[in-house]
Amino acid sequence: MISRNPQLNRAGELQHLLTTEGLPVAILLDILDTAESFVGVTERDVKKIPLLRGKSVFNLFFEPSTRTRTTFEIAAKRLSADVHNLNIAVSAQSKGETLLDTVNNLSAMYADMFVVRHLQSGAAHLIAHHVQSDIHVINAGDGRHAHPTQALLDMFTIRRYKRDFQNLRVAIVGDILHSRVARSEIHALTTLGVPEVRVIAPKTLLPAKVERLGVHVYYDMVKGLKDVDVVMMLRLQNERMQSANLPSSEEYFKNYGLTQEKLSLAKPDAIVMHPGPLNRGVEIDSAVADGKQSVILPQVTYGIAVRMAVMSILAGN
């Protein structure tokens, strides 16, 4: 039986970052506040600080990724860590080595931190459960389950533009069913006290019992976007058309794509977010993605500061 919250150590401090679910508000705010102090660093000429000097960070990507892996790499390097990138999709796993074998081998090389992406939900939990107690695990995306640093950088972005979470109406639009980003965003938003979180999607892209996560469900984007402060768009994968989730990307865009016209239903100062990479003309119109309400590029910038914050907090615990 695995019962204790596996992210916290016995003192209640952050030991691993696996999901935003079940994290105390104080820890979430600490990460956001710490990230705030690093935003300045990323804007300096000399961008390095020595908080992780002498530490080894292993990027373990069992699933291809460029953007997330790169931002983690930049974040670790700005903290002066030694970074090792392993693209496991094309190495050990294809030779039959199990996930835990790979992790054990790297632990023997004196790793201090693992940044893990895997296509199976629960992979990061499994690793965290089996590493030595002085190693920290950061989940960089596991299956459909969680992508906590993405959610945290989204929270950081929201706070920068909206100041606090207590009076917000937030809509998450798109493929909730398959999205680890959506799950992590929902838990982060509800924990931080956002009073109304909406999800907007066709029934084929919503999990059963999604309302039990504390969200209001809308099938109609026109109703769902009314008076919201934040619109969080999700990426639509092409394979959804093959598996009978949707008939076509054209019909999807017509009903669930974000256009300027639909955005006008939200509050005039609403911000538009997207975890990237964008499918222009599928889930979002270019005019909106590049428009004045879009904060998509700042999200990417803040991603580095937030990941620095997570790494430095973990290294200190």
Binding site: E21, S121, G122, D142, G143, R144, H145, A146, R180, R183, P207, A208, K209, V210, R212, L213
Partner: peptide, 15 residues
Amino acid sequence: HDGEIAARLGLPTIP
């Protein structure tokens, strides 16, 4: 099972 836990954990479901 196609319920709350699978919704939370992001596990593929059997209704």
